[in-house]
């Protein structure tokens, strides 16, 4: 692996990986530390990496397992119990491709929101990021619920066009 490829890999996956770690440990600073550690580890051991091994799956699995370790070591409270018991079954097993793709997609959606038309983006953000109901959004923006629905539909349509390449 040369440095350019490594850097490109970092650019694409750093943010999704941080979000993966964050979902487990609930602390973004610690999540960033974990992801950076994993990247340094991968770089330092790049000669030993099996060429056939799927690097992407390896890195996501490392981040996930590392996060679970940190959670066991430092974590307290219900969150730990809930997440560990849920993760217990699949710890040490490879992360699924679909899960990786979902983290990447989430990242692309976040980046693409700002390219939506202003009203449309605002409605989408209030709904998905702030978790408001359509009625609350309608009141807040002084528009009808019907218009909120239309904006949501338009946002989903545009996001799909922006994110998923045309065949």
């Amino acid at each position: 692996m040369d440095r350019l490829i490594f850097k490109q890999f970092f650019e694409t996956h750093y943010s999704p990986l941080c979000n993966l770690a964050y979902r487990i440990i609930g602390d973004i600073d610690k999540s960033e530390d974990i992801v950076q550690d994993v990247f340094v580890k991968v770089w330092n051991n790049r000669d030993q990496l099996d060429k056939d091994r799927n690097i992407k799956s390896l890195v996501y699995t490392m981040v996930k397992n590392h996060s679970l370790e940190v959670l066991r070591r430092d974590g307290i409270g219900l969150r730990v119990v809930r997440i560990i018991s849920k993760a217990e079954e699949d710890i040490q097993s490879n992360i699924q491709e679909e899960e990786i793709e979902n983290y990447k997609l989430l990242d692309q959606i976040y980046v693409s929101i700002r390219q939506l038309p202003p009203k449309c983006g605002e409605v989408f953000t209030l709904s998905k990021v702030n978790g408001l109901t359509y009625t609350q959004i309608a009141e807040r923006m002084n528009i009808s619920v019907k218009t909120v629905e239309n904006h949501m539909g338009k946002a989903l349509k545009l996001l799909r066009e922006m994110i998923i390449p045309k065949p």
């Binding site: 943010s15 992801v35 997609l105 989430l106 959606i109 990021v129 996001l159 799909r160």
Partner: peptide, 25 residues
């Protein structure tokens, strides 16, 4: 449908500074 479902996770989405992180790495 997938975009709609994945978007529900935006509530927990964390923004990170890729540039600063790369410098550290």
């Amino acid at each position: 449908i997938r975009i709609n479902e994945v978007s529900n996770d935006l509530r927990e989405y964390q923004q990170v500074d890729k540039k600063a992180a790369w410098q550290k790495v």
